[in-house]
Amino acid sequence: MSIDIQHAYNILYPHFQERLCLNEPLVSHCAFGVGGPADIWVTLKSQQELVDLVNLCAEQHWPLLLVGSGRNIIFADAGVRGIVARIDFHHYQINMQTETSALLIVEAGACWDQILDTLLPLGWSGLEFGVGISGTLGAGIVSNAGARNWDLGQILEWIDVLDARGSDSDPDDQFAPATKRHYTRNELDLSYRHSRLRSKRSTVIDDEGKLVFSPRHLIEPPEIVLRLGLHLSYQDSQQLLTQRDIYLRERRQREPSLPLTGPIFKDHQRTSARDLIAQVGLQGQIHGKSQISEQNANYLVNLGGASAEDMLQLIVAAHQQVLRQCGIDLMLNVDLRGEWSHPDQTNPL
């Protein structure tokens, strides 16, 4: 997919102005601290801006990658071609249902910790299991993020999405604008670190250590979470705040303190990815400026100036060693985006 970058920039600038950037370094928008430039970067502050941008990109056949806070993405060293847009709308409201229950209606760009800072002092429980998860709630429901044997799916009632699956039509076909859809919890095929929105979109490492990317859409992802309805229950606020502090201490004990992101792999049903990688002797392994954490082997640490390729080499090595020594095919829990140059792969968007 090709795009006249300057032409697209000139069209978009009157709408976004200082929020629009050419050749934006993605290292600034990635928890791993790696990644080359995005041809065009823009921050979206409202649902309407998202709808308008998606429809314009579909009409013009400009490739568009939508991201949250970048906590679960490794951007390639060559960057991303086309437009990368951050979803940064995060309004919320609490609708009382009974004296002890409420529905939190929250936009997809809201960050987990920021919402908790509001809810817990008010005595609203439901999301505290995710203390320390720094991503957005929109991205969180795509991967059904969770901790402590809880996940978002367990408190979710519904989501609204923008459906842009019709954008992959031939340029000569009639333009079909994206449409909003409403899904209940039971329509999302929620399970461990999975939802229907993530299905067939993950990168796989095959038996030979080669990357196998899923087909990419003109608008990626093709269904974009706009807002969520989450069930809350009332509890004593002081107890909730005390529990938050306990959870934070526990997380700091098991996660590295250096710049990092993770977990890299999903846990296997029989044992954790952390234990498997340690078992094959790769805990603390270094490649370039990247390291498999000595504290938790399912995390990567950027030692300062790491490249995406440094991290990819460690990811592939961990996958291959666990596969050969333990017979377990670990599945990636992070997304690889951009123009990767790994041997024998098919490049994604």
Rank of each mutant, 00 (worst) to 15 (best):
Y92P: 01
T271H: 12
I83M: 05
E157W: 12
V106M: 02
E107I: 07
A317N: 11
V204E: 11
S237T: 11
D163V: 03
R201W: 02
V80E: 00
R274T: 04
M1C: 10
R244C: 01
D207H: 11
A308P: 06
L232P: 00
L22T: 09
T43R: 14
D335G: 02
T346C: 13
R165Y: 08
W124I: 05
L44H: 09
A38N: 08
L314P: 02
I286S: 03
D117G: 06
P343Q: 13
S167Y: 05
A176G: 04
D88W: 04
S167Q: 08
I286C: 09
I40K: 03
Q114S: 12
Q239E: 14
W62C: 08
V42I: 10
A139M: 06
R81W: 03
T118R: 15
Y234F: 15
S237C: 10
R227H: 14
I115D: 00
G140I: 03
L22Q: 13
S167N: 07
Y183W: 15
A38R: 05
I315E: 03
A164L: 13
E187R: 13
V106H: 02
Q313F: 10
H231D: 05
S134H: 12
E339D: 13
E220D: 14
L314W: 08
L137P: 01
S28A: 12
D310F: 03
S195C: 09
T242Q: 15
G123E: 04
N144L: 08
